[in-house]
C-alpha cells in the first residue's frame, strides 16, 4: 500500500466521491445510516415480540422460570456478554481509526471484532451441547422434561433456544458483513473517504450486542 492511497480519492475507484443520485457524500452517508436505522427498528420489533412472549410466560409460570434460570449456564452466558461488549468496543474503535485514516489499525480492529464473534458462537455451541447432554431440547423434548414435568419448563427452554438461536444467526450475519467490509479496507476500497460504509456494519454489530445485553439478564441472571 503506498502512502498516497489514503488521501487520493482516485485510488478509491468508482465508489468515491459519491453515487451520482446524491448531491454529496455527506447526504449519501446520511441516507445509508437512516436506512440502517429503519431496518434496526424492524429488528427491535422482531425481538420485542419474542421478549413480550417471554415476559408473559414468566408472569404465568414464575416458579418454572426461576428454576430454569438457575439451571442455565450462568458462567458461559456471562462470559459471552463480556465477549460481545469487548467486540463492540473494538468495532467502535475501528470506525474512528478508519475515519482518522488509519486503515491498517482499523483492519486489525475489525479482525479482532470478528474473532470475538466466532468466540461467542463457540461458547454458545459449548453451552448448547451441555444442555443437549442434560436432555434439554426445543419443544419440551428430552429426559429433563421427564424429571421436571410442570408447565413452564418447555416454554422456557423453547424460548431459550429460539431467542438465543435467532440472536446467534444475527451474530453470524454480522461476522459476514464485517468480513465484507474488512476485504474493502484491505483492498484499499474502503478508507476515511467513504468510512460511512463501515459505520453501517458497526451499527448492525452494536444492535446485536444490545439485544444480547437484554437476553443475558432474562435467561441467565434474574
Amino acid at each position: 500500500m503506498t502512502t498516497a492511497t489514503h488521501h487520493e480519492p482516485a485510488a478509491i475507484g468508482h465508489e468515491a466521491p459519491h453515487l451520482e443520485h446524491f448531491e454529496d457524500l455527506e447526504k449519501q452517508a446520511h441516507a445509508s445510516r437512516l436506512g440502517m436505522w429503519i431496518f434496526l427498528a424492524t429488528e427491535v420489533l422482531l425481538f420485542g415480540g419474542a421478549f413480550a412472549l417471554f415476559a408473559s410466560y414468566q408472569v404465568v409460570f414464575p416458579e418454572a422460570f426461576r428454576y430454569s434460570i438457575h439451571h442455565n449456564a450462568k458462567l458461559l452466558g456471562s462470559l459471552n456478554t463480556g465477549v460481545l461488549l469487548v467486540s463492540s468496543i473494538f468495532v467502535a474503535a475501528a470506525v474512528h481509526a478508519l475515519r482518522g485514516g488509519r486503515s491498517k489499525l482499523a483492519a486489525w480492529l475489525v479482525t479482532a471484532t470478528m474473532a470475538l464473534g466466532f468466540a461467542f458462537l463457540g461458547i454458545k455451541s459449548i453451552e448448547y451441547s451441555r444442555h443437549f447432554a442434560e436432555g434439554i431440547f426445543p419443544g419440551g423434548v428430552g429426559s429433563f422434561f421427564q424429571e421436571h414435568r410442570g408447565p413452564g419448563f418447555p416454554e422456557f427452554w423453547t424460548l431459550y433456544y429460539g431467542m438465543t438461536g435467532l440472536h446467534a444467526i444475527h451474530v453470524t450475519i454480522g461476522i459476514g458483513v464485517l468480513a465484507f467490509l474488512l476485504a474493502g479496507i484491505v483492498r484499499g476500497k474502503l478508507t476515511h473517504v467513504n468510512s460511512h460504509r463501515l459505520d453501517i456494519g458497526a451499527i448492525y454489530w452494536h444492535l446485536v450486542d444490545v439485544i444480547w445485553i437484554f437476553l443475558w439478564p432474562l435467561f441467565y441472571l434474574a
Partner: peptide
C-alpha cells in the same frame, strides 16, 4: 426511526 419502534413495542 428507533423512537417509533420503541413506541410500538
Amino acid at each position: 426511526a428507533l423512537l417509533s419502534a420503541a413506541a410500538m413495542l
